[in-house]
Design a protein around this nucleic acid. Structure first.
Length: 576
RNA sequence: GCCAAUGUAGCUCAGUCGGUAGAGCAAUUCACUCGUAAUGAAUAGGUCAUCGGUUCGAUUCCGAUCAUUGGCUCCA
């Protein structure tokens, strides 16, 4: 195995790519080319618009550089020398990058063949260390990530020390493509979008709606069991509400335009919080009734930029599984710990067990006293420790209104999804003058915590589809089993079995089509059925059923009562 | 919103160097009655995303719009 870490190999591959681009094209200005989590990229400003064919040419040129084992050579220059060289080469972006290097730091360059790059390093000793690479795509990207800056052309690629690692990575991409929720959503008839309805607005088909209803029901049950109460609030509210909340000042560009009703502007809600606060404020509150744990499946609409929409994962209309916990300072630590414990247990039910919390702390511009921030942040940290987890800290990464914990969950093929968020809010209680009467008879401002467990129902459904690759566990499956009579002669027996299973609460159908068993199996498999129940002459005569399970394979002839018990158990235990 | 690409039947795609289109799967009908990933035949299905321009003629060329895809930015 190579002694070079994969990040170094990728960073070096980015240089090799830049060298290839320099060899092949005129008037190229270079920005930067770092390693990323699963590859590398390099940003270029060049007159030629790069296409897929260009990528092939560049790959071929890179292979030459790699096969020649072209060395990476480091040298240092003074700032003046560096400026002079970059200016001679008309490398304006590099000059800006050079200016960003603090005084006193070493200014190093790396040479790879003809290509010389301002770079901190380190690099592999020669390009031959790049055992396997592939260029993936061309995309636009703003210089320094700022949309006011010019847009550069970015080439993405990936690289590994070994060819087998690249093959594994490409297989993972293949697998991810097969699981793509947009593709499965169409294939399994779960949901769709319509141009007539509008971008980012989801239409839930019967099967998708069934699954949604199943997990929403579970969500509600669990919330009641864990001391939450449910709310319902309207979809629109007057502009005064959004003025008070501050959304019209800070969030207006993400809100749908108002509608004028009886000379009042009404906005479609982008968030549920102000409504929950109005419920809190509908009468005086005493410390005795805190904490309030209020939850709602609240549908909101946000005008997301058109380029950011992505199937169910980023929609314009979506339902938050929203909750607000309003409590006293004494209660807050316990409440946070409970929210986290509750979240982890729900994720486990769906088969997500690898979970990474991220803690975001106070940014430079923030509302709320430092004492409140400190207490809130501490209670978040403690909750994570209590759950036996370690959090990754994003210092200064919190919203201006409070610190937060986000959970990233890993799915069946190891991808991370950002889902649960637990956020303190020091802004809204202040703006809405929320109070409670304390033990001392005086008015106090409560703590308020926003919490979305799945984030959004739509997004969660998209993640679930990809996590299960469309094969939903029995408790969520719209159709739990399909009975396949081999010939028409077994249709009565099949119907009888179906009736028996339906009476037992199982969702089964009979495939009565005039089709071979192989054909029926194929279709049932493509529809990701968990149970295929074959009834031929033999089974009909013996009063049994041939069971084929998606997870366990062929189980042979079973007594219907045994099968029903097995399936019921699987439903109750929510086996994934 | 920005950069780039794409848009042909329900789905996956082919095709027309300008003369109004085709396959597989799915659907429907008929026949077949079959033992664990495709039984056969027939039928039907399209304003070639939309609008405009060039042209005798546009699905094809040009422009705009809409939508989608890969990124960037954004996600108070």
């Amino acid at each position: 195995m190579s002694k070079f870490p994969v990040e170094m190999i990728r960073h070096s591959a980015a240089h090799v790519m830049a060298a290839a681009v320099q060899n092949l094209y005129e008037n190229v200005r270079f920005d930067i080319g770092p390693a990323t989590e699963d590859g590398f990229y390099y940003d270029f400003d060049m007159p030629v618009r790069l296409t897929a064919e260009d990528l092939e040419k560049i790959e071929a040129e890179m292979k030459k550089i790699i096969n020649a084992r072209t060395p990476f050579e480091m040298f240092e220059l003074t700032r003046g020398e560096a400026e002079k060289m970059l200016r001679e080469r008309n490398q304006t972006y590099k000059l800006e990058r050079l200016a960003d290097i603090p005084e006193g730091e070493k200014i190093s360059f790396y040479r790879t063949g003809e290509f010389v790059d301002l770079c901190r390093g380190p690099h592999v000793d020669n390009a031959g260390r790049i055992g396997a690479f592939k260029l993936m795509s061309v995309a636009g990207s703003y210089f320094k990530g700022d949309e006011k800056n010019p847009m550069l052309q970015r080439i993405y690629g990936t690289a590994f020390a070994e060819k087998s690692e690249l093959a594994d990575y490409l297989r993972l991409l293949e697998e991810a493509k097969k699981r793509d929720h947009r593709r499965l959503g169409t294939e399994l008839d779960l949901f769709s979008f319509s141009e007539n309805v509008g971008p980012g607005l989801v239409l839930w088909h019967p099967k998708g709606a069934f699954i949604r209803n199943a997990f929403e029901t579970y969500w509600k049950e669990q919330h009641y069991l864990n001391g939450y109460e449910m709310l319902y609030t309207p979809h629109i509210g007057r502009c005064e509400l959004w003025q008070t909340s501050g959304h019209l000042d800070f969030y207006k560009e993400s809100m749908y335009s108002p509608m004028d009703i009886d000379d009042h502007d009404y906005y479609v809600k982008p968030m549920n919080c102000p409504f929950h606060i109005e419920i809190y404020k509908s009468r005086n509150r005493s410390y005795r009734e805190l904490p309030c744990r209020w939850a709602e499946l609240g549908t909101v609409y946000r005008y997301e930029k058109s380029g950011t929409l992505h199937g169910l994962l980023r929609a314009r209309g979506f339902t938050q599984d929203d909750s607000h916990i309003i409590c006293t300072p004494e209660q807050v630590e316990n409440e946070i710990a409970e929210v986290l414990r509750f979240s982890l247990s729900i994720w486990k039910t769906f088969g997500f067990t690898r979970i990474q919390p991220y803690l975001s702390t106070r940014p430079s511009k923030a509302v709320g006293t430092p004492e409140r921030w400190a207490k809130a942040t501490e209670s978040l940290e403690k909750a994570v420790r209590k759950a036996g987890l370690d959090c990754i800290v994003d210092n200064g990464g919190g919203a201006f209104y409070g610190p937060k914990i986000d959970l990233k969950v890993r799915d069946a093929i190891g991808r991370e999804w950002q889902t649960t968020t637990i956020q303190f809010d020091f802004n809204l209680p202040e703006r809405f003058h929320m109070t409670y009467t304390g033990e001392d008879g005086k008015q106090h401002q409560p703590y308020m915590v926003h919490r979305a467990l799945f984030g959004s129902i739509e997004r969660f459904f998209g993640i679930l589809i990809e996590h299960y690759a469309g094969a939903f566990p029995l408790w969520l499956a719209p159709e739990q089993g399909r009975i396949l009579p081999i010939t028409d002669a077994q249709i009565p027996a099949a119907r009888e079995l179906a009736a028996k299973m339906q009476t037992a609460g199982l969702r089964v159908t009979v495939d009565e089509r005039s089709q071979s068993l192989g054909g029926k199996i194929k279709d049932a498999r493509n529809e990701r059925l968990q149970y295929m129940l074959v009834i031929g002459e033999r089974e009909a005569a013996e009063g049994k059923v041939g069971v084929r399970s998606r997870r366990e394979g062929e189980l042979g002839a079973m007594d219907p009562a045994v099968l029903i018990e097995k399936m019921q158990k699987e439903v109750i235990e929510k086996v994934c």
